[in-house]
Design a protein around this nucleic acid. Sequence first.
DNA 1: CCATTTGTTCGTAATATTCTGAACATAACG
DNA 2: CGTTATGTTCAGAATATTACGAACAAATGG
Lengths: 165, 165
Amino acid sequence: MNDELINQFVETWGTMGSAWGVNNSVARVHGLLIITDRPWCIDEIVERLRISKSNVSTSLKELRSWNVIRKVFLPGDRREFYACEPNAWEMLFNIMRQRKKRELDPILASISLTCEQAKKAPSGIAVDRLAQMKQMLDVFDNLATLALKSEAQVKALVSLLPKRK
Amino acid sequence: MNDELINQFVETWGTMGSAWGVNNSVARVHGLLIITDRPWCIDEIVERLRISKSNVSTSLKELRSWNVIRKVFLPGDRREFYACEPNAWEMLFNIMRQRKKRELDPILASISLTCEQAKKAPSGIAVDRLAQMKQMLDVFDNLATLALKSEAQVKALVSLLPKRK
DNA sequence: CCATTTGTTCGTAATATTCTGAACATAACG
DNA sequence: CGTTATGTTCAGAATATTACGAACAAATGG
């Protein structure tokens, strides 16, 4: 039975989430929607993953905030179903957009400020080092901005990557 | 006094660490070494960050495992000092190398396996979707492999990025 | 209306993690 | 040697996170 395969993927996705600071339940729910590629309602997910309804509800809310799932209404059924973003790259970009906004932007702002201030009162502070850090974060900012604007451009960039044997 | 600036950066770095799944103390110690750019011994760090010696000791061990700091011996002093990797990009690549080995590689292996198996028993599983995921992770694998091999190549790639206004 | 279905919120129990201080090593020094 | 300086390990305390289920909407359908 390939329920086992689904479990395999769901657990792997959950583990990956944990490694990148995403709640395990959230990642598992996401994994389920990815691997099955059909709409699921809350109670079905509860049943399948054996986690509480409230946990599923908040996990779905979280996934919605990342723009990686969407509500689907099935005719003749008043439950809310959820399906994941069908394009893997688009999914990734949505996550990048959010992480940029939530994590990179504030940090970049803070470091830029520190950098400015350090130039004026530099003793004990490695101004060069700080500038280097800022510059590096700027590159990430550019990358993320690029992804935000155009999937095509990033794909073009990716295609420039030397392929591994 | 620019102790305040140092604090600012240390806290920012700590916050960034937390966002990416790195222990806050570990990231704060790292931040201190980055922003001051001089060797610190354990007791100095204890004093400066107001955290326990054991915490500093384990944090330094962790940072060493990421290859982002190194021991420095000062003549006439038998304490062990630590300084961070002086090149920001090299630091980043060292982290990437480790994360790839610890997190990406096992996940990619697992998903490749699931992907193979799914092709044989596909009912209920979105094989295309799964293949797409695998392909995407492969791109990351290539990127990381590239960074592992050559800093110069990545920099060249980065330089291709359209600059933001 | 009222019962039922569906979904969310929230207090707290369960769990996981982080941090500490004490105990333990190890090496230098007198 | 014994004493001091230095660093690590580890059990458990402190803290933070996560998950649950009960209570609470809200909306449907009889």
